[in-house]
């Protein structure tokens, strides 16, 4: 549809008689060139190289050797850690942190939109801080809170309540590790998506609400469903994509909480950690590339789903 608008029928027949520089497609090409070049060098080429590498054995020092589908076969059939821990962990983490963080961001943004401007600035700054400071904050606050001795905040509190009789090794025992990771991630999930949703809500025309109330809107819930969400679909989509990508890439949380790459008994191992493990600890770049291609596919599928959800047409 867009193409038809830019090229009215009247011009095309004459195009062949003009000089090449005057043609529309040439101009278009020139205008596109800077972006296309940048995109190709910094995004397209690395992705293509990664896909290419995923079909080889490559240890950084020697030349890559072609291996066909072997890396993928090993990944799905031979890599017990991947199938038993990494994949279930990643899916669970992405579902809870992705969807949970997204809903939380929206709710927080909506709540913040209701308070007075000065307080709003302060609050939103406070909420955005965790995702800015990231790793540092996690180590300082949560390592202290979930410290394994009796002086750890959570342990001290539980001991005081006599819910436990000896301190729990929060960051060493595999059974608690994932929960802590999820809590920390949700806490720091008010990232860029949150800011965009806040701005989206702020930009909605107040008259829309008034008009809707005249038309029989009754409460805040209906306000959100009928006015707020439909008016900020682009921001919602952006937030969704950001939270999906974030959820799949937040591997560092587990590492910085545990302090070592394989997290305790792989309890908090995500795909990103697995890639790190194979890429930078074992130097099996071909295999790591195969894992990252799988990650790419996962992220792509999820963003397709988000796209479908937020750009749907009414089916009346």
């Amino acid at each position: 549809m867009a193409r038809k608008k830019n090229m009215p029928e009247g011009i095309t027949p004459n195009a062949s008689h003009k000089r090449m520089v005057d043609t529309d497609w040439f101009r278009g090409l020139v205008l596109l060139l800077p972006y296309a070049l940048m995109f190709a060098t910094f995004i397209l080429a690395p992705v293509m190289i990664a896909v290419g590498l995923s079909f080889t054995h490559f240890d950084v020092v020697n030349d890559p050797k072609f291996a066909g589908l072997e890396n993928y076969l090993t990944l799905f059939t031979g890599d017990v850690v991947f199938m038993k821990y990494v994949l279930p962990n990643t899916v669970m983490y992405a579902i809870i942190v992705g969807i949970g963080g997204y809903v939380l961001s929206f709710l927080m943004a909506w709540v913040l939109a209701q308070v007075t401007p000065r307080a709003r600035t302060l609050y939103s700054l406070a909420m955005y801080t965790p995702s800015m400071t990231g790793q540092l904050m996690v180590t300082i606050i949560f390592k202290a809170a979930f410290s394994g001795d009796q002086n750890g905040i959570v342990n001290a509190w539980l001991l005081q309540l006599r819910a436990i009789d000896q301190p729990i090794q929060w960051l060493i025992q595999p059974e608690h590790f994932m929960q802590i990771m999820i809590i920390v991630s949700l806490w720091s999930s008010m990232g860029i998506g949150f800011l965009s949703m806040l701005s989206g809500i702020m930009n909605i025309d107040q008259e829309l609400y008034e008009a809707a109330y005249v038309d029989g809107l009754r409460n805040r819930a209906q306000e959100i469903i009928y006015i707020t969400v439909p008016s900020m679909k682009p921001q919602m989509l952006f937030g969704a994509v950001m939270s999906i990508v974030g959820a799949f890439n937040m591997g560092w949380i587990g590492i910085s909480l545990a302090g070592s790459n394989p997290t305790p008994e792989y309890s908090g191992q995500l795909i990103v950690n697995h890639i790190d493990d194979y890429g930078y600890l074992r130097y099996e770049m071909g295999y790591a590339a195969a894992v990252s291609v799988v990650l790419l596919c996962l992220v792509w599928i999820c963003s397709q789903v988000a796209n479908k959800l937020f750009t749907e047409k009414e089916d009346f």
């Binding site: 589908l69 076969l73 059939t77 199938m83 038993k84």
Partner: peptide
């Protein structure tokens, strides 16, 4: 069953591709 399934995936992965 996990082991059985792993074998099955190994046998069928090329078909899936």
């Amino acid at each position: 069953y996990w082991e059985v399934r792993r074998d099955q995936i190994g046998d069928n992965i090329s078909k899936a591709f």
